[in-house]
Amino acid sequence: MVSMLDVSGVSAGYGRIGVLKEITLRVGPGEIVAIVGANGAGKSTLLKTISGLVRARRGMIRVEDQEITHWAPEKIVRSGVRHVPEGRQLFGPLSVLDNLLLGAYGDSTLANRKAVMARVEQVYEIFPILRQRNAQRANTLSGGEQQMLAIGRALMGTTKLLLLDEPTTGLAPLIVREILNVILRLRRQGISILLVEQNARLAFSVATRAYVMETGRVVLAGTPEQLILEDTVRKAYLGNSPKLIRTEVTQR
């Protein structure tokens, strides 16, 4: 079966500093794959390398049957890979609607305004609060709303693979639950997800598979059920408790 994303032997970094060392991982179609690891393990750099913000020095990145290793970020976006980055990177002084419209920028499948507005409507259906904030400037939204807008903006294109960088960090428990529900819902709609999280318990609650990163390398891989049995994972990320809580999809 063709993978949604194949990263093989990728090394990357900033200037002379190497961050990623020979990373190999895979996201299958319709999977939610989690990457857990401490601060500075290289998780965000990995996402930036996939979305083209950081250049891979070695190795190969493939999306479905296309190699995208040396593509420019805007071309990678057009191939359906959308990165929701750390810090959300919204267009603060622009309205919620404008942020969404720019999310569809350069998507040639959305030729007319009607198609774009239909996409906006879909995003508002997933995040109803954004509809109420429609004309508000993005930088006046709460943290949770900003995260929803960042994810919503990434859904404006013809999205096949979503790269989420710590989407729940700093958010209230109720909002965290809502975002996890959206992640599960997107998966059911056929979008594959690569989820970077420091909070392993949270990541394991939705992931089909997970990788553990330490100092730029993948050190462990497996299903959440397998990984929680590993001593190192339990001690480092789960406070030594082997309990695994699965987030269930709540019906609206």
Binding site: V77, L94, Y105
Partner: peptide, 23 residues
């Protein structure tokens, strides 16, 4: 216009612009 907004988007946040397919 969307083009004008895209130019402003670049000014506000160039990383955000790149990740939305704005060259």
């Amino acid at each position: 216009t969307l083009l004008g907004k895209a130019l402003r988007a670049c000014a506000y946040n160039s990383v955000g612009a790149l990740l939305n397919g704005i060259s």
